[in-house]
Structure formats: C-alpha cells, structure tokens
Computed example of a mutant assay.
Amino acid sequence: MMERRQIIGLWKRGAARVLTTVIQVEGSSYRRPGARLLLADSGEYAGTISGGCLEAEVLRKAVWKVRSGAVVERYSTMFDDTDEVPYGLGCGGVVDLLLEPVNTPECQALLAAAERSLSGECATVVTWLPGEGKLLRRAVLAGDGELIFASEGLGEKKLSCARGLRPEETYEGRFVEELRGPQRLFVLGAGDDARPLVAMAAMMGWQVTVADGRSQLARAERFPDAHAVVVLSADQVQDLRISSEDAVVLMTHSYEQDRALLAALLPVAPRYLGLLGARHRSSLLVSEAAAKAGLPLETCCERIWAPVGLDLGGEGPEAIALAVMSEAQAMCMGKMGASRRLTPETVRRFVEEGGFDRYLKQQCAVDLAS
C-alpha cells in the first residue's frame, strides 16, 4: 500500500510517462500480479516489479516500447550464468508485464481508481489486454458494481461480463484486479510504547487511528504518522466504527479501560484483536470481558491474541512493536504459519532427482520461445 501511495504521488506531479504492471507469473517471482512501476520523464520511478532483475531493462526501454500504444512483454528471470547481461537474480520464473502510456483515458482511469482506494474506496478493474491487433481496453467498477469508467467501444455485453469476473481468477486475454483500501489499524492507548507501533504500521501503508482518553497523550504531534489521533473514552469506542475487517491493539495500560474496550470489541470480532499485557492479567481480563459481553469464553479466546505479538525475543517498545506488527500482518494477510526454511532432505532430493537439469532446460525453452 505504501508503494501505491508513492506511485500516486509521482503521477500527481504530472510528469509520468509509462505504467508497468505484472499481470502473470509462471514459476517463482519476487512480485505477484498487480505489482506496478511508474516511470517519469526525468527517469524517476516509483514501485517495483521484481527483486531488481527487471527494473533496469524495463526503465531503459519502456518509453520506446509503448510508442504505438500498450503492449504485453514476457521476461524470464531464470538463472543463466552464461548470459553476459542476465536480468540478475535468477528468481526462476517467467513474468508477463503490461506496459501502457500514462496519457490515455484507460491509464488515467486506473490511476484515479488507485488514488481513491487510498481513501478506502474499493474498485474492480478489468483490463482487456492488447495483442494480435487488439488495443487495450478497460472498465473500472465501484465496490457496488456501478460503472465508473469504460473504454470507448466496450459494449454492454462485455461490461455485463466484466461484472461477473472475480479478481482471484485467471481469464484468457483479461487481467482482473481488486483495488482495496489500506488495512485499518486502531491503536487504543497513546502511551510511549504505542509510538513505534504506529510508525511501523504507517511504514507498511496501513491507515492508523490512535485513540486514548488522556488528552495529554492523544496529540497529533506525538503520532505524526497516524491518520487520526482522537481523545476518546472507553465507553465511546463505538464512535470509531471498528469493523470485522479492521485490526485493533489494546494497550491503554489501564485494567478498567481494557476491560470495557474488550467487552465492546469482542462482539465485533475484528480481523486482528491484540491485547497487551502479561498472561495472568490477560486471562482475568478476557474472563470478565466475556461475561460482560455475554459470549462463551471459548469464542472470546478464539478472537483474541494475548499476550499480543509473535514471540520474537528482544525488549523495549521497538521490539514489541515489531512482534505485534508481524502477528497483525500475518493474520490480516491470512498467512499465519511456520517459517519457511530449506532442509538438507529438500536440497538432496532436488539434486538427486535432476531438478537442476530440468531448471536449465526450462530456461532454455523459454529463451527460445522469446
């Protein structure tokens, strides 16, 4: 999301030339479909489309590539130690990129939708890809399905079809994506230990609201990266309009306030609900808040992460903030699980089964096809 903010910032300055979007990946890749890079006249750019192996090549040729309009280009990031100028990282995949000039109604509509998404307005963007004599065409639909933009010549049949396409599915000749708003995080408690948490979340592009009943702490100058800082008592938490899509961290350091906030938030069941404090304190809080909310203890325990944060080790506010953000990020992205590591067995199996030879043959086939 922070990358999207940077792209929109560069676009708004008025000198952008070419927008590049990852639309398909085969094999391994550092970035997934939807990743973007925006190039400006000065050579300045925002965003990334790989781990560094494609950017230089794309930036060097992007303006020339789109001289006649949008195009789709295929790049291989397979490792090749015989190539004088390899793309660099050997990510082991094939990436399809859509390059389009910025000064078209289609690109302007996409970037405008991306800008609105930063304020929480969701949109679905359907792009009919160029190629074989066909020009790029695009439709932008609001979250409720209302048509915001459609390329000239798109008939009602195609627009009706666009409304039925799902972003997570692949369609021949079309790229479908959903532009969602930033993840919202509510930090309830404005003590000093909340400051690095707010800074880290903002760095991730999250929209952070800080709330506390203590006016001397809930001040905007103490949280310059926050979207909003409000003075709010525990019995006013409903005014924040927290939903099941949001992340919340309770860190008021007040037992009574945490209990009142927890009782109010448990029925909402935020996507992530973290409670700062020792295990014995959290256990008593959850027990009393569950009774106050009229919910079974089992249900409440399933909705709360306490003690808050992954067990990463370390001490101090910054280490706590890292642990909390790691856990919140994993939960909000649906990726909570074990760390990924190679094992000797995996490496030996790959080598013994001829995996490296197949890897090079696959690369050669891709190079010949391109």
Rank of each mutant, 00 (worst) to 15 (best):
Gln216Pro: 08
Ala228Tyr: 05
Gln236Met: 10
Ser233Glu: 15
Arg219Glu: 12
Ala201Lys: 07
Pro224Met: 03
Trp206Phe: 09
Ala201Asn: 10
Val230Leu: 09
Leu232Gln: 08
Arg219Phe: 03
Ala220Tyr: 01
Gln216Cys: 07
His227Ala: 13
Gly213Asp: 10
Ser243Tyr: 09
Gln207Asp: 14
Gln207Met: 10
Arg219Thr: 08
Leu217Ile: 11
Arg241Ser: 13
Ile242Pro: 01
Ala201Met: 07
Gly213Leu: 07
Phe223Gln: 11
Ala228Ile: 12
Asp225Val: 02
Asp212Glu: 06
Val237Glu: 10
Arg219Ile: 00
Val230Ser: 02
Arg222Ala: 06
Ala228Asp: 12
Ala201Arg: 02
His227Ile: 12
Arg214Tyr: 01
Gln216Val: 10
Glu221Val: 04
Gln207Ser: 14
Ser215Ile: 14
Ala218Gly: 06
Val230Phe: 02
Ile242Trp: 00
Arg241Pro: 04
Phe223Trp: 05
Leu232His: 00
Trp206Thr: 13
Gln207Tyr: 07
Ser233Cys: 13
Met204Lys: 10
Ser243Ile: 04
Gln238Val: 10
Ser215Glu: 15
Ala228Val: 13
Leu240Trp: 02
Phe223Val: 11
Ala228Trp: 05
Gln207Leu: 09
Gln216Met: 11
Trp206Gln: 14
Ile242Gly: 06
Val237Thr: 09
Ala202Glu: 11
Gln236Ser: 09
Ala202Gly: 07
Val231Phe: 06
Ala211Cys: 05
Gly205Ile: 06
Asp239Tyr: 12
Leu240Gln: 07
Val230Asn: 08
Ser243Thr: 14
Arg222Val: 03
Val210Arg: 06
Ala228Thr: 13
Leu217Asn: 13
Arg222Ile: 03
Trp206Pro: 00
Ala234Asn: 05
Pro224Val: 01
Ala218Trp: 03
Ala201Trp: 03
Val230Glu: 08
Gln207Arg: 03
Ala228Met: 09
Gln236Lys: 08
Val229Trp: 04
Leu240Asn: 10
Asp225Gly: 04
Arg222Thr: 12
Ala218Lys: 06
Asp212Met: 03
Trp206Glu: 14
Asp235Asn: 11
Pro224His: 05
Ser215Pro: 14
Gly213Cys: 05
Pro224Cys: 00
Val210Met: 02
Arg214Ile: 06
Ser215Asn: 14
His227Thr: 14
Ala234Gln: 04
Val208Gly: 02
Arg241Glu: 14
Ala211Trp: 05
Met203Pro: 00
Ala218His: 06
Asp225Ile: 04
Leu232Pro: 02
Val210Ile: 07
Asp235Ser: 11
Gln207Ile: 07
Val210Tyr: 01
Val231Met: 01
Ser243Asp: 13
Ala228Phe: 09
Ala211Ile: 11
Asp225Pro: 05
Ala201Ile: 10
Leu240Pro: 09
Ala211Leu: 07
Arg241Asn: 14
Thr209His: 02
Asp225Arg: 01
Trp206Ala: 13
Gly205Phe: 01
Arg241Val: 13
Phe223Ile: 11
Ser233Thr: 15
Arg214Phe: 04
Ala202Arg: 07
Asp212Asn: 04
Glu221Trp: 04
Gln207Gly: 12
